[in-house]
Design a protein around this nucleic acid. Structure first.
Lengths: 216, 216
DNA sequence: CGTAATGTTGACAAGGGTCAAGCTTAGTGG
DNA sequence: CCACTAAGCTTGACCCTTGTCAACATTACG
């Protein structure tokens, strides 16, 4: 399944820090940036937790598996986003780099006195997942794909030209669909003139309001 | 839709406190217990947030609506459980009493120094929702209903006789199904001898391992 | 340039939704 | 206390959306 093994290259602390990625005070601690190749595992189900992560560049998927291999991706994370608190003592989920990615790692256990700084981040994650639950539980295939494209556009600064780091299989497992259904939804939007595809992973949103109308 | 209006009756502080409902230290504050009738709204989307709630007795549903009325229930809460942090400044969700319920309300804003106490609770809620995402995104109707019954059994102390406070419509909106499909799943389990129904809302789990096998 | 991975499209099947009818239960009022 | 009513639940028939399987196209990479 994993085609590239986890290759981790430790970079100097703060080397890639840049504006716009402001951190909560509670996370200003010793830290390092680790490089992960495509499909490299960042942490796995059952591993010891208590660490937080921030995407410096690249993209990450958080997922869970059923015994028979069915997979549900609960979140994608792109540059600037913090993840890793979807766990108590041991991780309940897998985290993998989708493409070559730099991950800032906060390896110290969170200081209880500073938990107030990360609580809002955890709550924001909770709200995001609950909203995603509504999409998966109650929306049709087209509505899910439209919502996904709008979400990705918003997270990449609202520009109409978006680069999808993830495969159709990842999108399908995020939306609770099959790759064929995702592909058909893309094709339908293309025929309607709502989007244009420059290669499978480069999407130009021609009529955002058309997509927004679809996902209610 | 709401057949009984919110009737709130403020009880003396701590009147119904009992063992087994231990609270995080951060929540030992001035508080009160409010009574809500069936279908009474505890809070609504857009309302000011910052309050935490604990079910004293009864049950609560947390949900969100689409513009056309489709509903997704993201969680049920029963006696002892804390909810209300699925929000930042304003609530993104609705909370309603399913049946006559007593709710302990912590109206003071959370002391940042004590946020460490509620962070684990928020993280547990996040893990729960993400696991539910897997159920809704990747499991069949039968698997979802079986998982629901097992979950309810575990939350009621593991006893095989469980009382469902919620209607089939609530279960359907929790599992991303229709009431007919939920009903058919119940009937199928009944025919298979896995459960017995004493009235629509009183379920006897005859063969828990059979249900556990279904939900993988 | 060749090969494997990824993505698209079509034909068909099936799981679950929709609509409709009938049944059960709880609540209400005579 | 019982009968009536309405809400909730169950069941059946049918159909549609989405999944499955297969073939083919495209892209990425060695």
């Amino acid at each position: 399944m994993i085609t590239t093994n986890a290759s981790s290259l430790i970079l100097r602390q703060g080397e890639l820090a840049r504006a716009g990625l402001a951190l909560p005070v509670g996370l200003r601690q010793p830290q390092q940036i680790v490089f992960y190749g495509a499909n490299a595992e960042i942490y796995g189900q059952g591993e010891k937790a208590g660490t937080l992560y921030q995407v410096e560049y690249g993209a990450v998927r958080i997922y869970r598996l059923l015994a028979d291999g069915r997979r549900q991706i609960s979140a994608f994370h792109v540059a600037g986003e913090v993840f890793g608190f979807e766990s108590d003592v041991h991780h309940h989920f897998f985290a993998e780099a989708i493409c070559p990615s730099g991950i800032r790692i906060f390896s110290q256990p969170i200081d209880p006195q500073l938990a107030g700084d990360i609580l809002p981040v955890a709550i924001a994650a909770l709200v995001r997942v609950q909203e995603h639950l509504l999409v998966i539980g109650r929306q049709s295939a087209s509505e899910r794909v439209a919502a996904f494209l709008i979400d990705m556009m918003d997270r990449q600064g609202g520009l109409p030209e978006i680069e999808l780091p993830m495969s159709r299989a990842d999108i399908a497992d995020y939306l609770g669909l099959t790759i064929e259904t995702v592909s058909r939804a893309f094709s339908k939007f293309k025929v309607k003139g709502a989007i244009r595809l420059r290669g499978a992973r480069m999407v130009e949103i021609l009529r955002p309001q058309s997509l927004r109308a679809i996902c209610s």
